[in-house]
Computed example of a mutant assay.
Amino acid sequence: MTAVDRLLAREPGPTPRADARRNLERLVVAARSAVAETGVNVTAQEVAQRAGVGKGTFYRRVPSLETLLQVVLEEVLDEAVAAADRALENPDPWRGFTEFAAAYVTLRKESCGVNEALGGAGSCDLERCLGDLRERLRELVGRAQDNGSMRADIPWEDVAFLLAGVATADRTIGLTAAPDQWHRNLRTVLDGLVARP
């Protein structure tokens, strides 16, 4: 379910006009980009400006910034689950896993930014999303290990932490991350996970 659909489901009633739905879509896109760039300091005013709507329109369409961020977080996690489902359909378990890993790292960085902006507050649907994601990751790792393409001595839970460590801060010990730093980190992690003949 998309963030827009989640917002609409919270307020049952007549189907909104097309322009109202477009405003909601713009607010969701704006919230995702604002959190990615601003982080925890994102405001309703900034999201409204990025969406090209007034603050009044923001509050007519969305009960609160927290509500908007919550549905955005759930949407991002659902996208990660969908990426895992696509990876599970790949006949090559290792290729499926590596495709998921790349998608997951980018979505995880976004979801962590939204969750941080929410102050770590969760919902029942958030727990469902996380449970679905854990189950998919366990399956992906299991498939790759069963066919011999991934090292069998690494528990799937460790893989979750390895992937979480791929997305880095912009700076560390006085060094600035390269624009493709997460790609380079991911290649190193995958190189450590692949089974050697």
Rank of each mutant, 00 (worst) to 15 (best):
G122P: 03
G119C: 10
R171Q: 13
L193V: 06
V71T: 07
G131H: 09
D125N: 12
R134C: 07
A3C: 12
R10K: 06
R196L: 13
R21L: 06
L77S: 03
L68R: 00
K109S: 08
V53T: 15
V62Y: 03
G120L: 04
E99Y: 06
E11L: 09
G174Y: 15
G165T: 02
G52W: 10
D19K: 15
D5F: 08
P16I: 03
G54W: 08
G13A: 13
F97C: 02
R17G: 14
L107W: 02
R26Y: 04
W182G: 00
S33H: 09
P93E: 00
T57M: 11
W156R: 04
Y104D: 05
V40L: 08
S64R: 12
V47A: 01
G122E: 11
E157G: 15
A82H: 10
E46P: 03
V81Q: 02
A167D: 04
V53C: 15
A31I: 04
A44T: 07
A177I: 13
S64G: 05
L8E: 04
L186S: 01
A178M: 12
A102F: 06
D125V: 10
L190M: 09
E157N: 11
R187L: 11
A164L: 14
L130F: 11
V76M: 04
R138I: 11
D146R: 13
P93A: 04
G13M: 14
L7V: 05
R17Y: 10
E99A: 14
E110P: 02
C112T: 12
A121E: 12
A169W: 09
D180G: 08
P155Y: 09
E127L: 11
L140M: 10
K55D: 14
S149D: 06
L27R: 00
R95I: 10
L140I: 07
T2A: 07
P91F: 03
A103Y: 09
G52V: 12
R128I: 14
T172H: 07
T98D: 11
A34S: 10
A18P: 09
G39Y: 07
L140W: 00
G142T: 15
F97A: 01
E74I: 01
L186H: 02
E46N: 05
V40K: 05
N23S: 14
A169D: 15
A44D: 10
T168V: 12
L69W: 00
N41A: 15
L73I: 04
G142C: 13
A44G: 13
S111T: 08
W94A: 02
N41M: 13
L126K: 05
A164T: 11
L24S: 01
P197A: 04
E25G: 05
T2L: 09
Q70L: 09
R108G: 06
L133M: 11
A9R: 13
N23L: 06
I154V: 15
R50P: 05
K55F: 07
R32H: 11
A144M: 03
E157V: 15
L8S: 02
R184P: 05
I173M: 14
T168Q: 13
S111A: 12
G113D: 02
G96W: 01
L65M: 03
A48K: 01
S123I: 02
R171M: 06
T98G: 03
V29N: 11
D19S: 14
L140H: 01
R86W: 05
D146G: 12
Y59R: 08
V166Y: 00
D153I: 14
V42F: 03
T57K: 09
R134N: 08
W94P: 01
P12M: 03
